[in-house]
Design a protein around this nucleic acid. Structure first.
Ligand SMILES: Nc1ncnc2c1ncn2[C@@H]1O[C@H](COP(=O)(O)OP(=O)(O)OP(=O)(O)O)[C@@H](O)[C@H]1O
Length: 743
DNA sequence: TATGTGTTCTTTTTT
DNA sequence: AGAACACATA
């Protein structure tokens, strides 16, 4: 037996790894080694028990987590371990592509993203002339139904469907629209995969047999349909291993049902349950803050993390008067820690609740010449120009993809506006065929009121030419698209030269990625590339090694960093305004809990009094979570400095440019960095015995030398000493935070 | 039909 | 701030 696998595991972790047969639940707090146990268990199965990799399935939640797991497994098992590691959606898509015909689809089906799905709803609403319901309302409801495993038919028959016949009707129409376009939305991948397996026992049998050992990471965030799929696949061998933490459930808004994990032992009666409380990741101060914070949630099962590490600096609180200063402070601290404490870029993460809050920081970091990557939020593939090119590719791969058709039919402009599309659309509904097929028919029709006939012929010709190139290298198809459509010229029309240039560069980058995809992947078909873009969109990473991470909290779930900044911790931002309005702050608190437990050594929690958001300056109070973290005697674990009082700030705010004392020149920026460096360098509190400082006493300041106190003003922690130095004259200091001693 | 201009609305988190 | 939409004009 390879003992290496067990080194670096605690006795209880080892016991869990050895427990390979039957259902197992590991319910444990952040940083307790759940993912580590999961990966080691797989290694144990493969190396010691000789289970072939293709009999093992590991499901993760986000693409980041998948990459992380694949990497860890490759380290232990080598690159050619054939273990299946996928997200739920990717896993379902693989199965569906194999057996699409069984449920009336073709293997090359498109995957509609949120935008495509919204637009389909919009079209349906327009056709039906519905104005008493909002699209978002219906879309949400339908998505929720799907996440509970309801198909349109079952929804129609359910209480909700009976009470809302018009919604049920829209649900059916929506699914018809998708089917006609040979497309599925994200939720459909799950629902259809489940239906496929449930209705075709022979197919299900194959997968049930194949996956002898099934693992699910972050199980607290599974929704009903995901739980059902897992249950179904695990039916035969019942070797289902799930790990999770109810305090880290942050996807309730996407249908996550915490009961899946809490009732696991009731569903699987023979399940073994393990709990881990030891945290191996973070310093005691960070753990204290995390425990203090999460205690404020009432709907939870008591559990306290116990730090296994035994030293560490305090958690730092940063307060800034606006978002720009916040960005500046964080940048300065990063400089300082790199310079003075030998941290690397990759050691840092700046986490935010909403992706836009990272913008100001991103700009400052870029100006400072630090390389970085951005996770979460606006993705590279969501840029308009990329989506446009992608839509051409989609139409080549699946000519029935109506969303793609509508996107490209008049882009670049070719004289096929609303009237032409309406005409084609009429043929499509009448004959029950896709828009592209309808366009092909329209091109041959002699209809007087169809003025765009010539243009339609041309468009159909263009698409046929592209489709004939379907099996050549993707980069060539993209080139061909750009050439035939005069894409570049169109880009140059609407906007400034610079904008057009960046956009074109983005497309060239996209082309490069397509090339790399084909070099890297076994299945290098166009279909596979398009799917990888919609299902596992990589961010445009400037560098993956040696760069700091700016990310949403959601996108770094399961990851860890030596130094973490949680920025924009303000009421209305983190917790979000919506959660406050709906009185659903507990999930936000769990998001914060996830954020701070990413930190290994150093944690900074930051808020800005003023923030530029949604086109205007907004004022926010510091997040309630900040005070919760340092509540009850943990003052020791938490220090504060900097910043002015909120109300004071509200009255006197000046010009944005000057706010962080820096107008764009590198010299000034560095001056600023140095100034703040001085502050952050020093421990925050120097003098506990403030009362001993009295007028007339002599002091020694660490930088200015000896002097005499000539005046004391202020109260308690804010007490200020005015000191006269023989050479330097008079200076004022906040006693508590000044590096000086009494003589 | 294209294009310009003005208006209103929406602002979380991911697959 | 930015998108998405609506309406008027070329
Ligand atoms: N027995 C151990 N001894 C030393 N370090 C450990 C041990 N177990 C886990 N660790 C370390 O603790 C950290 C957290 O482990 P891991 O990521 O597996 O935790 P987790 O429970 O999945 O966390 P989270 O729930 O926050 O994602 C890792 O750096 C890991 O290497």
């Amino acid at each position: 037996m390879d003992q290496d696998i067990f080194s670096g595991l605690s006795p209880i972790q080892k016991e869990i790894v050895m427990c390979t047969e039957g259902p197992v639940l590991v319910l444990a707090g952040a940083g307790s080694g759940k993912t580590r146990v999961l990966t080691h268990r797989i290694a144990h199965l493969v190396q010691n028990l000789r289970v072939p990799g293709y009999n093992i399935l590991a499901i993760t939640f986000t693409n980041k987590a998948t990459n992380e797991m694949v990497e860890r497994l490759e380290k232990m098992l080598g690159p050619d371990n054939s273990v299946w590691v996928y997200t739920f959606h990717k896993f379902c898509s693989i199965i569906l592509r194999k057996h699409a015909e069984k449920i009336g689809f073709k293997a090359g089906f498109s995957i509609y993203d949120d935008d495509d799905s919204k637009k389909l709803f919009k079209r349906i609403f327009k056709n039906q002339g519905i104005d008493y319901l909002t699209e978002d309302e219906v879309r949400n409801e339908i998505s929720n139904a799907k996440q509970k495993g309801l198909t349109a038919e079952r929804y129609t028959a359910s209480i909700d469907g009976i009470n809302n016949p018009e919604k049920a009707d829209l649900f059916r129409k929506y699914q018809e629209g998708l089917l006609q376009a040979n497309a599925m939305d994200y939720d459909d991948l799950l629902v259809n995969a489940f239906e496929l397996l449930n209705n075709n026992p022979d197919i299900a049998e194959y997968y049930k047999n194949k996956f002898k050992y099934i693992h699910v990471d972050e199980f607290q965030d599974t929704n009903k349909i995901q739980n059902d799929i897992t249950k179904l696949i695990a039916e035969k061998w019942k070797n289902l291993f799930v790990v999770g933490d109810d305090d880290q459930c942050i996807y309730k808004w996407r249908g996550a049902e915490i009961e899946n994990i809490l009732c696991f032992d009731q569903v699987y009666k023979e399940a073994k349950t393990f709990k881990l409380q030891e945290n191996y990741r973070s310093t005691p101060n960070i753990i204290t803050s995390a425990n203090n914070l999460i205690k404020n949630n009432s709907e939870r099962h008591e559990k306290e993390l116990v730090a296994q590490r035994n030293s560490g600096v305090r958690v730092e609180y940063l307060n800034s008067f606006n978002d720009l200063q916040e960005a500046q402070q964080i940048t300065s601290i990063i400089y300082s820690l790199k310079y003075n404490n030998n941290y690397q870029n990759s050691d840092f993460a700046i986490l935010v609740r909403e992706a836009i809050a990272g913008n100001a920081i991103e700009n400052r970091i870029r100006e400072a010449g630090i390389s970085y990557r951005v996770l979460g939020g606006y993705k590279f593939y969501e840029r308009k120009e990329i989506l446009d090119v992608l839509a051409y590719l989609r139409l080549v791969s699946n000519p029935e993809d109506n969303a793609a058709f509508l996107r490209v039919v008049n882009y670049p402009k070719r004289g096929m506006g609303g009237a032409a599309v309406d005409f084609i659309s009429g043929i499509s509904t009448e004959k029950g065929i896709s828009l592209f097929e309808a366009a092909c028919i329209a091109a041959d029709l002699d209809e007087v009121k169809f003025r765009a006939k010539a243009q339609t012929i041309e468009f159909v010709e263009l698409m046929r030419k592209l489709i004939s190139k379907k099996n050549t290298a993707i980069e060539c198809i993209i080139r061909y698209i750009l050439e035939l459509t005069c894409f570049k010229e169109e880009l140059e029309k609407g906007q400034t030269k610079e904008e057009a240039e960046t956009r074109y560069e983005n497309i060239l980058f996209f082309e490069k990625q397509a090339k790399q995809f084909q070099l890297k992947n076994k299945d290098s078909s166009l279909d596979a590339f398009i799917e990888s873009v919609t299902l596992a969109p990589e961010t445009k990473e400037i560098e993956s090694e040696g760069c700091i991470t700016i990310s949403t909290v959601h996108a770094v779930k399961g990851l860890e960093f030596p130094v973490v900044f949680v920025a924009a911790c303000e009421e209305g931002v983190f917790p979000s305004q919506q959660s406050i309005n709906k009185e659903e702050v507990e999930e936000e608190r769990r998001v914060m809990y996830v954020a701070i437990t990413r930190a290994k050594d150093r944690l900074y929690v930051s808020n800005a009094n003023r923030r530029f958001r949604y086109g205007k300056d907004e004022f926010h109070y510091p997040s309630r979570f900040i005070s919760e973290m340092k509540a009850d005697g943990s003052r020791q674990a938490f220090s504060e400095f900097g910043g002015r009082k909120f109300e004071e700030e509200r009255i006197s705010f000046s010009d944005r440019e000057d706010d962080y004392g820096y107008n764009g020149s590198v010299e000034k920026a560095n001056e600023c960095v140095n100034a703040i460096k001085q502050i952050i360098h020093a421990p925050s509190v120097y003098n506990e015995s403030i009362e001993d400082y009295k007028t007339g006493k002599r002091i020694k300041h660490s930088r200015y030398g000896e002097g005499v106190i000539i005046l004391i003003t202020g109260e308690e922690d804010d007490k200020v000493a005015t000191v006269e130095f023989p050479d330097l004259g008079i200076k004022k200091f906040v006693i508590k935070n000044t590096p000086m001693t009494l003589l």
